[in-house]
């Protein structure tokens, strides 16, 4: 129906039911999600804890199979993980036995992203990404020697270093202090390709709990609701790009944030009640 030609990712009636191993009790984590994500689009997913955001992301990554429905990328069904879709996990999933630089270089050295690169090019790419996330000086440290925010930046650098087409990020900035967070939001937009024409941008899916972060980053915000996890609303963020800090003070920014807040407020209150 819609402009299907430009859809990078298509979720079609996607449902995910988890079956508890012993009791065989089913939990519907995600129910009937249908969503088209355009090539070069930046989509943020917000919603209360446990509404199935991570599950949707894992299915797009190919790490979980939908119990029902199909996910297409470039009109081909996704049948497993691939380096075209890079994932930044909610708990980082850093390799504890590798230093910062080796974590960042893991995919380049062992996976498909590095196949066409020489050792020197790989090295340069690692160095560039250490600088990008401002971890110069800590590149030889092990994950257990880093703070939560530093670990998160390593995970982000590892994702970006692999140069995936689609960026799947699960609360990637959640553990950062407010200042670093703002800096990295802008940085992320630059890496995604905000200043380039849409055709050259990557496709990004970004989960966050922070409504203003979603509004600042996204072309479109997906608001999810719980029990079962469904898409409750889709909002177009019509703020002009490229965006800078100034956009946060505009009236439109406030209106959009308020609208999203209204949508998830009841459930958020319910969740803590």
């Amino acid at each position: 129906m819609q402009a299907v030609e430009n859809a990078k990712l298509r979720l079609k009636d996607v449902t995910k039911t988890f079956i508890a191993p012993r009791t065989l009790k089913p939990t519907v984590a995600v129910s009937d999600v249908t969503l088209d994500i355009m090539r070069g689009e930046f989509v943020c997913i917000v919603g209360p804890s446990g509404c199935g955001k991570s599950t949707v992301l894992n299915m797009i990554a190919g790490l979980e199979a939908p119990s029902d429905g199909t996910i297409f990328m470039d009109d081909r069904p996704i049948s497993g993980p691939s380096a075209e879709r890079g994932v930044m996990f909610q708990d980082y999933a850093l390799f504890p036995w590798l230093t910062v630089q080796d974590n960042i270089g893991f995919g380049l050295r062992n996976g498909t992203p590095g196949h066409s690169l020489s050792a020197g090019e790989i090295k340069d790419r690692i160095e560039a990404h250490i600088d990008l996330v401002r971890l110069r000086g800590s590149e030889a440290k092990y994950p257990h020697q880093l703070s939560g925010g530093m670990r998160q930046r390593v995970a982000l650098a590892r994702l970006l270093a692999n140069g995936p087409d689609v960026l799947l990020m699960d609360e990637p900035l959640g553990a950062l202090d407010a200042q670093t967070r703002l800096i990295l939001q802008s940085e992320l937009l630059r890496i995604w390709g905000e200043t380039s024409p849409t055709a050259q941008r990557k496709t990004a899916i970004f989960i966050t709990h922070d409504i203003e972060e979603a509004v600042f980053l996204a072309d479109r915000v997906v608001v999810m609701s719980r029990h079962p996890g469904r898409v409750r609303a889709l909002l177009d963020i019509d703020l002009p790009r490229p965006r800078n800090e100034h956009v946060r003070t505009t009236q439109r920014f406030g209106e959009l944030s308020e609208e999203i807040w209204q949508l998830i407020r009841d459930e958020a209150l319910e969740a803590i009640a």
Partner: peptide, 19 residues
């Protein structure tokens, strides 16, 4: 659409917790 296109044969490589 061809819902049958749902990746039917997933080998051991396939995601855990499949249907």
């Amino acid at each position: 659409t061809q819902t049958g296109a749902k990746p039917a044969s997933r080998d051991g490589d396939g995601p855990a917790n499949a249907a």
